[in-house]
């Protein structure tokens, strides 16, 4: 299998793509990763165990054409919904890991996505696991109407409940994170990170341009723009991601770690 860069068109084979974490060696463009590639990059090999993998289609409004659209996405991706969640280990530390996959109806949030995210926070709260979410989404899934909209409140409430229990949540915003997902659980991490150059915002750029009739800065709604304006903790490259996560997880273990030598000195 070969990979072609969306930006410069250069071609890599599978091994090169993996070696570079899906970052183009020619132009540094970040290729979109599917959820399995993403899990492979951060989780310890073979450690990911998916939960609620069979949660699938709901059509609360019986919206015209929605079922066909859903089935086409299933066909294309082999997934049942736009988010995969489960238990994993990152350099040995147990975590709840969730990954959204933008190939599936732009990873929009309908009732099943909202439900899986909510269950992930509830499960992690019960088992005292940290939550790591790789986020990408076009927003709420309009074919599910207000039921989809309400998933914003449901997921935000589940983050709130988890936070009350002292849980540690890292959200990693990848390209693109917009609309109702950016305005709910994405922006509620204890630590919020993003990949370089990821598009992150509430309203679409075209909508903003139409409202303003003026030119927007070139880096408008990029990860770098959000960092500059105070809405991110850090921008982390794919190469650094695994180490950054394991460092952060270690620093949130809530244990005082004292070396043998220090122990002697304090005794």
């Amino acid at each position: 299998m070969s990979y072609q860069c969306d930006k410069c068109g250069s071609v890599q084979n599978e091994q090169e793509f993996k070696d570079h974490y899906g970052v183009c060696p020619q132009c540094s463009n970040y290729a979109t990763l599917n959820c399995y590639e993403r899990i492979g990059l951060v989780a310890d090999a073979g450690s990911f165990m998916e939960i609620w993998g069979n949660d699938g289609f709901k059509d609360p409004l019986e919206f015209p054409g929605y079922q066909q659209k859903y089935l086409a996405a299933v066909e294309k991706t082999g997934m049942k919904e736009a988010v995969v969640v489960g238990e994993a280990r990152i350099q040995g530390i147990r975590v709840m890991l969730g990954v959204m996959d933008s190939r599936f109806v732009m990873a929009s949030m309908g009732s099943t996505v909202g439900e899986k995210i909510t269950k992930a926070f509830e499960y992690a709260g019960d088992k005292q696991l940290p939550v790591i979410l790789f986020i990408a989404s076009g927003g709420a899934r309009m074919q599910e109407g207000v039921v989809a909209l309400m998933q914003m409140a449901k997921t935000a409430s589940s983050v709130s409940q988890y936070s009350q229990k002292g849980g540690f949540y890292v959200s990693i915003l990848t390209n693109p994170t917009t609309g109702g997902v950016s305005a709910s659980f994405a922006m509620l991490g204890d630590i919020i990170m993003a990949e370089p150059n990821a598009l992150i915002g509430f309203a679409g750029r075209r909508v903003v341009e139409q409202t303003l009739y003026e030119k927007l800065p070139d880096n408008f709604q990029s990860a770098e723009y959000l960092l500059e304006n105070g809405f991110l903790d850090a921008i982390i490259t794919r190469e650094e991601m695994r180490d950054a996560l394991s460092e952060l997880l270690y620093m949130h273990k809530n244990t005082v770690i004292i070396s043998k030598r220090e122990e002697k000195a304090y005794a």
Partner: peptide, 11 residues
């Protein structure tokens, strides 16, 4: 931070 402001209210 429109997205953050809305998210924070929900939370």
């Amino acid at each position: 931070g429109q997205a953050e402001a809305i998210a924070r209210n929900l939370f």
